[in-house]
Design a protein around this nucleic acid. Structure first.
Length: 203
DNA sequence: TGCCAGGCCCTCTTTAGGGCCTT
């Protein structure tokens, strides 16, 4: 399905918390958070913990604030991901460092034989192109750099998805509010040296 | 035994190496 066959004005901004960096190494999702934007307005939210079936490391407990006891009472990944697959039907998606979230989405949906049609755009890649003078391009840094309001919660899925959505809207405002998802997708893939001048040094 | 992510992107590049980002 091409981008044009999806709801052009609807984007799901998503963020996974996981047991590690690589589903190929056995890592699983432990939380999914997402906000659905229609014409730049939040119209729906998704936030669920999920039990990966094994204990997470102390590092992950500390990094995310998600404890093994919290996960012990959560539904299994398969149950949550079925609901999330329904949530993202017909939508394009956005994430910060999207390749990371996409590989976990692909792995978790493959495990339950579900699929999706949307494409991903990456706010990290866009940030590197349009804010070259930012101290770095971590989500938290760009949120501060752009003065995006936040509640101080980081590394929880819904909070990070909300911040990524606000960052996305700030990026759109800086580039051109009328830029389409497809145009932003193209920008994210444009070699940095070929990004138009008026977009390549925003602050 | 020893290793253990992977895509993007820059540069002292392309016959490569290393930092940045995500958990």
């Amino acid at each position: 399905m091409s981008l044009s066959h999806l709801a052009a004005n609807t984007i799901v901004v998503l963020d996974f918390e996981t047991t590690g960096l690589s589903p190929k190494q056995g890592d699983r999702a432990i939380e999914i958070g997402a906000v659905k934007l229609v014409d730049g307005q939040v119209v729906d939210r998704f936030s669920e913990l999920m039990d990966p079936g094994f204990r997470v490391s102390g590092f992950i407990e500390s990094y995310t604030g998600i404890s093994n006891s919290m996960l012990a009472g959560a539904p299994a990944c398969a149950e949550v991901m079925h609901r999330f697959a329904d949530f993202i039907q017909g939508c394009n998606m956005l994430a910060h460092n999207a390749s990371f979230d996409q590989k976990f989405l692909d792995a978790e949906l493959a495990a339950i034989s579900r699929d999706y049609q949307g494409s991903f755009v990456c706010s990290l890649l866009i940030g590197r192109r349009i804010y070259p003078n930012a101290p770095n391009h971590k989500l938290g840094t760009l949120v501060e750099y752009k003065g995006v309001q936040h509640d101080g919660v980081f590394h929880r899925a819904l909070a990070d998805a909300e911040m990524t959505a606000k960052l996305w809207l700030a990026m759109l405002a800086d580039c051109d509010t009328k830029m389409t998802f497809k145009q932003m997708h193209t920008l994210s893939k444009t070699p940095k040296a070929k990004v138009p001048d008026y977009l390549s040094a925003l602050t």
